[in-house]
Design a binder for these strands. Sequence first.
DNA 1: TTACATTGCTTGCATTTTGCAAGTCATTGG
DNA 2: CCAATGACTTGCAAAATGCAAGCAATGTAA
Lengths: 143, 143
Amino acid sequence: MKLEFRCNCPFTSALDILGDKWMLVIVKQILIEGKETFKDFTESEEAIATNILSAKLKLLEEAGIITKTKKPGNRKSNLYLLTDKGLALTPLLVELATWSDKYLRDLHPTLQNEKGMDQLRNDKSAFAHILVEKYREKQAALG
Amino acid sequence: MKLEFRCNCPFTSALDILGDKWMLVIVKQILIEGKETFKDFTESEEAIATNILSAKLKLLEEAGIITKTKKPGNRKSNLYLLTDKGLALTPLLVELATWSDKYLRDLHPTLQNEKGMDQLRNDKSAFAHILVEKYREKQAALG
DNA sequence: TTACATTGCTTGCATTTTGCAAGTCATTGG
DNA sequence: CCAATGACTTGCAAAATGCAAGCAATGTAA
């Protein structure tokens, strides 16, 4: 499980890093669900196994999408945070959710339909912008 | 390899279908590289194995992203075409390419840098719009 | 019309990735 | 000090991916 590129196509190359079941789910959990520590991820709804989580966090770090630091004042907990490169995936995530909302309901009737869904439908670029802003505020509060 | 959803999250559910090495690559090849037949895909730069290709085309069809029909006037060749649901993935693909263009060049120096890249940087929603229009024209010409 | 090539697959098997359960090891709170 | 917690690793089973070969149904050229 290492970083390699199949070809020089920009679409395919993004998928060489992000194209699996977990990478973007982890980014989503950090950005939207406020997860920061290893433990946070293991307690998620999606229930990622710890060995996979460990491997994927390593890959995300190698790819420059997240950073791993120690939580200030705590030598036990690690802090996983998005870099700018990682935050720049926000529009991609928003497109994923938009597509699901519009086209996945027939295959998946119990798909979430409350929370920010109206806001997403109403103006997705504003939605993305707010997500990024909130995350930056949080980061500023930390460091 | 069947269609199942981990949870009700719209982000994660999209990845339950699209989150692997091949699904979006195939959509890209149809949309951007004009590929239509089984053979077209096997001749791609990305070199997908025929057994995987077969399985993924089946999944894409089950998910309602592509349709499989016979080429008119030819009982041998099949024609794989995007549905509206599949065409609606265009903005997602454009976001993938945009992210690659901006953030992947340090990891992947030989990443493509010509062709439509300027147009993509200049106005990505216009770029997406043009892709969709061109594909629809092509479809109209066929049927 | 018959041999040959092409298209669209499937099968078998090796390799890689994913998933689950359990165990390790350094903090840390009491 | 000692149990609990957080962050992992390890071992093994299951699933997905990759490679090579094979095969049946057209299509094509002599």
